[in-house]
């Protein structure tokens, strides 16, 4: 019987310097914070982070672990808190960035998930996103002659996702919005799930609905209750507003941020 249960430490050990991480969730919702807290304490550096970003990216930038950020937005999206470390790094010109629209980001992951070199979309036409990413080409569609943006495949090495419940084989259910996580797991690279609960294989299939995260694409599962805190994991818990406010306050002081984050987050 397949058993993919592992530990947070084993997952973090798979992440090497210079790796490209694709992080699931959206803004403050369902981010794999248990993994990221452990990553914060590891010596890994020079990461490329691909994310619909909030605390995840800001934390890793604040700890000096990020060489390049690829994102569709950077916002706490309604939760209290601000991207203080990210904003500082961008304003100092200290971080490489690939600024995309939300859908261009999705298109790049779709390309990777289908092993295509690019994915066509209208998103980005007429914007300075194309000016600032000169490597992204606008193509002329066969059949119609329309202009379309050809977003290159965005290929992760490691995919980290938090779910409500997973089984031993890595099948998983997400009870709020899946966001793009169903797609992310198929983008290539190794996928690791943290889960509020882990149950014996078979228990998640009872209602006959299509599975949210498919086990064959998952390399490891770790039970991490409260694993998305201080972000939210619907319906288990909402954002911890006080903690996010404290985080934002601590991030104002770059000298002491690392020590604060390792001890308090």
């Amino acid at each position: 019987m397949i058993d993919k249960q592992t530990t947070v430490e084993n997952v973090i050990a798979q992440i090497h310097d210079g790796a490209t991480l694709l992080i699931g969730g959206w803004g403050p919702a369902r981010k794999p914070m248990a993994f990221l807290r452990a990553l914060a304490k590891s010596p890994v550096k020079d990461l490329t982070i691909m994310s619909f970003a909030a605390l995840d990216l800001d934390l890793l930038v604040g700890l000096g672990k990020v060489k390049k950020a690829i994102y569709g937005f950077t916002s706490f999206e309604g939760a209290p808190g601000a991207m203080v470390n990210f904003r500082r790094a961008r304003q100092e010109g200290a971080l490489q960035a690939m600024e995309l629209s939300e859908y261009m980001f999705i298109a790049g992951i779709k390309a990777a998930a289908e092993r295509l070199p690019f994915y066509p979309t209208r998103s980005g036409l007429g914007t300075d996103i194309l000016t600032m990413n000169p490597e992204i080409e606008v193509i002329t569609a066969p059949y119609t002659g329309e202009k379309l943006v050809a977003v290159p495949a965005l290929k992760p090495d490691i995919i980290l996702i938090h779910v409500n419940v997973a089984d031993y084989a890595g099948n998983a259910r997400i009870f709020g919005d899946c966001y793009l996580d169903r797609l992310f797991v198929r983008a290539g690279g190794k996928t690791f799930l943290s889960a509020e609960r882990v149950v014996p294989t078979g228990q998640l299939a009872e209602d006959g609905r299509a599975m949210d995260i498919l086990g064959p694409w998952v390399n490891g599962v770790v039970e991490c209750p409260q694993g998305a805190a201080p972000g939210s994991c619907y319906p288990d818990y909402d954002v911890d507003a006080a903690k996010l406010a404290e985080y934002t306050w601590a991030a104002q002081d770059p000298e002491n941020f690392s020590a604060w984050a390792k001890d308090n987050l």
């Binding site: 937005f73 950077t74 916002s75 304003q91 100092e92 600024e99 998103s123 980005g124 914007t127 996103i129």
Partner: peptide, 14 residues
Amino acid sequence: KPTLRGPGSAGLNT
């Protein structure tokens, strides 16, 4: 090297 970094393009162009 922006003087003020905003939230990003997000869904705006969509």
